[in-house]
Design a protein around this nucleic acid. Structure first.
Length: 413
RNA sequence: GGGGGAAUGUCCCGAGCGGCAAAGGGGGCGGACUGUAAAUCCGCUGGCUACGCCUUCGCAGGUUCGAGUCCUGCUUCCCCCA
């Protein structure tokens, strides 16, 4: 869709080459503006969970490249908008979070941006802002008169986020209906206060972002631009980021660096090249070389993808450690010291041990898995559901407990 | 305000003559084959102190030896009329 356009600015060229671009409100205009000096752009982040997940990582990476190419990124925390709730892409009204929960989430989320962006106080240092700053101060009547009059209900009803709910005959409450108005206003506010002229986000945010561009024009700001990334899916078409145990979180305490490394290691062949461009900082030449690997050799590229992506988020050291742990575990078949470990007393039943380390959701579930030959103690398949962990099972002070081929933990006393 | 429909396994969709732990998908997990990939095939997918026991079909009662299934009331959602 953008094949005709070849950008001249470093910013857009980088983004396009690396596959970040889905839609833009005005390629030529934005390209020109990006060449004429330092731009300011923002991405908004909901505070609905205590951590962002990999779905949010693409836009974070866009901000990273934005800053690398000489511009100033703003990370906008949705402390205000989360109190309202974005209906985009959701089938049902989500429970409203309390203000305290939102604050907690916000503080818990903030940390990851330090890994992607430089918040130095001068030059093109990134800025973090919370839209609660201005949204909570809006007065209803004033808001209706100043902002609300620029919105046409007719048009709002045609927006995907609204239309889908109506077509499916699912409830869309008035509060959610207002979400896009608030997000639009954020853009205007940032344009005025911080000279921001670009909002980026996932393709599901296109409607909300374009509304902001529109509102800016009506309220007399400088020209605003919208830029979105493609939705993150695997080559097989599945939405990415969900595993059995939940989402792939970016916070280390919710999804360990080792698991994160494994997540990338298990990428489908067809996705390797794309993900290297999107989720690592490797030069495109190197990526091209790795992408040329075929057959089982592409596993080398996957390891690099895993290590680089993990290093970006959790640091080089944690990434190397995860890589080494995986190498020992999978290639040498030994129990690496650094596998996730749990403390359980000798005499613990095999079934409850599996539940305790998170391999199974219940004893019944554990029983079924054991019976199907999925569970191993020190690499020996155990099918006896009455098996108990004994002192003889310990090798160098730990038991290696495995579930399937990929999940391994150490049990210590 | 009147009339008609709907709610099923706490991931989702969805069957269900009064004997039902409840068909069938999707998803997920496990096994086989591989390369920690994809595709394909097979198994599992309510809980437990487990050849048995317990708790499930919007909620609360009732009929019955026995109710997801029949009756009554309630809640929520949808459609039509006003």
């Amino acid at each position: 869709m953008t094949s005709q356009f070849s950008p001249k600015s470093d910013f857009l060229r980088t983004l396009m080459d690396r596959g970040y671009i889905h839609q833009c409100s005005d390629f030529e205009g934005l390209d020109q503006k990006a060449r004429s000096g330092m731009l300011t752009a923002y991405v908004g982040y909901d505070c609905t969970a205590p951590s962002l997940h990999i779905g949010n990582l693409i836009s974070g990476m866009m901000l990273h490249w934005f800053q690398q190419t000489g511009h100033r990124p703003i990370t906008l925390m949705g402390g205000g908008t989360t109190r309202v709730g974005d209906p985009s892409g959701k089938d049902e009204t989500r429970k409203l979070l309390t203000v305290e929960q939102i604050e907690d989430n916000k503080n818990s989320i903030k940390g990851v941006f330090g890994k992607l962006l430089n918040y130095a106080p001068d030059g093109n240092g990134a800025i973090m802002i919370d839209n609660a700053e201005w949204l909570t101060k809006l007065n209803y009547i004033d808001m209706l008169r100043d902002i609300g009059r620029h919105f046409s209900i007719n048009r709002m009803l045609t927006m995907d986020s609204v239309k889908l709910r109506l077509e499916r005959e699912q409830e869309l409450s008035f509060i959610e209906f207002n979400y896009m108005i608030l997000q639009s206003y954020d853009f205007v506010e940032l344009a005025r206060k911080h000279n921001c002229s670009l909002q980026m986000g996932g393709s599901d945010q296109w409607g909300n972002i374009v509304n902001g561009v529109d509102l800016g024009r009506r309220m007399g700001t400088h020209q605003l631009y919208a830029l979105t990334t493609p939705l993150l899916t695997t080559a097989s078409g599945a939405k990415m980021g969900k595993t059995a145990s939940g989402a792939v979180w970016l916070n280390a305490d919710m999804f360990s660096p080792y698991d994160y490394w494994q997540f990338w290691r298990n990428t489908e062949d067809a996705d390797v090249s794309r993900f290297l461009k999107l989720f690592t900082l490797m030069p495109l030449d190197d990526i091209a070389r790795l992408s040329a690997l075929a057959g089982s050799e592409i596993n080398e590229a996957k390891k690099i993808l895993a290590t680089e992506a993990t290093a970006l988020l959790h640091g080089r050291e944690a990434a190397e450690e995860a890589s080494e742990t995986a190498r020992k575990t999978f290639e040498e078949g030994m129990a690496a010291e650094t596998l996730p470990s749990f403390n359980l007393p000798i005499g613990t039943g095999l079934l409850s041990a599996n539940v305790a380390v998170g391999f199974a959701s219940s004893n019944s579930n554990a029983r079924q898995l054991v019976e199907s030959g999925a569970v191993r103690i020190n690499d020996v398949v155990i099918t006896d559901t009455r098996r108990v962990l004994t002192a003889e099972d310990f090798r160098d002070g730990a038991i290696k407990l495995s579930m399937g081929k990929k999940k391994h933990v150490l049990i210590k006393v």
